[in-house]
């Protein structure tokens, strides 16, 4: 049994071990994915020579650029200025991981890498399409199921509810 006065010491020791592990993890992350650890984000390069702002600024301030312009667009109808979520998607959409041959492109893996790493949840693509504009235009609007799994489950679920007495 641990005697009460040992407790603080044990806690301190545990804390120290945890801290060391944390430092170790930091060091390890300088390489790519070490098994089990969150891999460093490696977002693919977008189309064209460079982004509309230097990469460092984009990484730091993209949300501010977008949020500011979003209000102007929604509230005043100012469209076609420098920053645009549509243009982000147009340049940075990539095939779904593991489906490199698929024709549909999505920007979610590009955004998702850093956002998963930084644990910052975005909900842009709950409403906005994550697919490039041109693609949607060329193919016309069809409804190939993307978030289909949950929708399908909802359908099945509601069907079951209706059948149940």
């Amino acid at each position: 049994m641990t005697r009460p006065r040992d407790l603080p010491r044990r806690l301190a020791a545990t804390l120290a071990v945890l801290l060391l592990c944390g430092v170790g993890a930091d060091a390890a992350d300088n390489k790519d994915s070490i098994d089990g650890r969150v891999p460093l984000p490696r977002p693919a390069k977008g189309k064209g020579e460079s982004c509309i702002e230097p990469t460092a600024s984009m990484r730091r301030y993209h949300m501010d650029y977008l949020a500011h312009q979003r209000d102007e667009t929604v509230r005043q109808g100012i469209r076609g200025r420098k920053y645009s979520l549509k243009e982000c998607v147009a340049c940075h959409a990539v095939p779904e991981p593991g489906q490199e041959e698929a024709k549909t492109l999505t920007v979610e893996p590009f955004c998702g890498q850093c956002h998963t790493y930084a644990a910052v949840r975005i909900d842009c693509f709950e409403c906005h399409t994550d697919k490039p504009v041109d693609k949607a235009r060329r193919t016309g609007w069809q409804a190939p199921p993307q978030k289909e799994s949950r929708r399908a489950r909802l359908g099945a679920h509601l069907g079951a509810l209706e059948r149940s007495p």
């Binding site: 549509k86 998607v89 709950e126 409403c127 906005h128 399409t129 697919k131 504009v133 949607a136 609007w141 069809q142 409804a143 190939p144 199921p145 993307q146 978030k147 289909e148 949950r150 929708r151 909802l154």
Partner: peptide, 8 residues
């Protein structure tokens, strides 16, 4: 319910 394939 969930929405997919929004128009841009």
């Amino acid at each position: 319910e969930d929405v997919a394939e929004q128009r841009p």
